[in-house]
């Protein structure tokens, strides 16, 4: 978990190999103790919450037991499932489009100097803009439906992916480039055998960060468009002071985030095991 948090807090570009190294070592040696402490802390947290919330107005805070009950109802009625799918649909489409555009663009950016000259000021400008400022514009362009959501989620996930891919492609170990040259690799062969594989850990780190941004984008999009999906569920239940029901989608989003990020880290370990040592 700490790794995800670190990634989130750090700047947008993560150096994958070096951080993984120390993390891996530390984690392995104290694992049983670490997990005991962690699980205990979570359990204590919920107990304290339960006890404390029992003495507070249910408008402000509800105990976990009430959230659990509300969740049961929402699952049974099918509402939670429907809204989760609605959110995921927009999220997958937006993130997928961002991935499809940003990775090739990042590579082209690293490959051609002219593209670098052209693209730099744009990327700098847009990257420094809080993307949320563009949300009303997207609504204006795409309306209140699915398309606007996709645009918002897509633009939220775009930049970490783009910047990481670019960074990966320009920070290839010069020794590998020398090897390629010494073995008479053509430009294309160097890209295929050296540059692209070097980028994989960077792209994986980009995906990890971007997924977090995509989730944020998803909730924002649902707040500002037609209040549907999980974000809509939060909003509507808050408006009607159904606090317990409001917490349910929040926990679903939380669970989604954790699931997505741990699965990308798992995937990265599978496809780029060398970057872990």
């Amino acid at each position: 978990m700490t790794k995800v948090a670190d990634d989130e807090l750090r700047t947008e570009v993560v150096k994958p190999a070096s951080t993984a190294r120390t993390d891996g070592r530390r984690v392995r040696s104290v694992t049983p103790l670490k997990w005991t402490v962690r699980i205990t802390a979570v359990v204590v947290f919920f107990i304290v919450w339960q006890v404390y919330a029992s003495g507070v107005s249910p408008l402000l805070l509800v105990p976990p037991s009430a959230i659990l009950a509300a969740g049961g109802h929402m699952i049974a009625s099918g509402q939670l499932g429907t809204d989760t799918l609605l959110s995921l649909e927009a999220m997958v489409t937006g993130f997928g489009l961002a991935l499809l555009v940003s990775v090739p663009l990042g590579l082209i950016w690293a490959r051609y100097r002219v593209v670098d000259w052209v693209i730099q000021p744009f990327v700098m400008a847009i990257f420094s803009t809080p993307l949320i400022a563009l949300v009303p514009l997207y609504v204006l362009w795409f309306g209140f439906g699915f398309a606007a959501k996709v645009a918002i989620i897509g633009s939220f996930s775009f930049f970490p992916l783009l910047l990481n891919t670019y960074q990966g492609a320009v920070s290839v170990d010069p020794m590998y480039r020398d090897v390629a040259r010494a073995f008479r690799a053509t430009d294309r062969q160097t890209w295929r055998h050296v540059v692209l594989p070097s980028c994989i850990p960077y792209i994986a780190a980009g995906i990890n960060i971007s997924l977090g941004h995509a989730l944020t984008g998803m909730i924002i999009a649902e707040f500002y468009t037609n209040a549907s999906g999980l974000g809509g569920l939060v909003l509507n239940n808050a408006d009607t002071f159904q606090t317990a029901r409001m917490f349910v989608p929040i926990f679903v989003v939380m669970g989604l985030g954790v699931l997505l990020m741990s699965s990308t880290r798992w995937l990265k370990r599978k496809i780029a095991p060398w970057a872990e040592r």
Binding site: Y176, D178, A182, H193, P197, A272
Partner: peptide
């Protein structure tokens, strides 16, 4: 080359 020149992904 010196050590560390093997392609780690191959």
């Amino acid at each position: 080359f010196q050590q560390g020149s093997l392609f780690p992904w191959k």
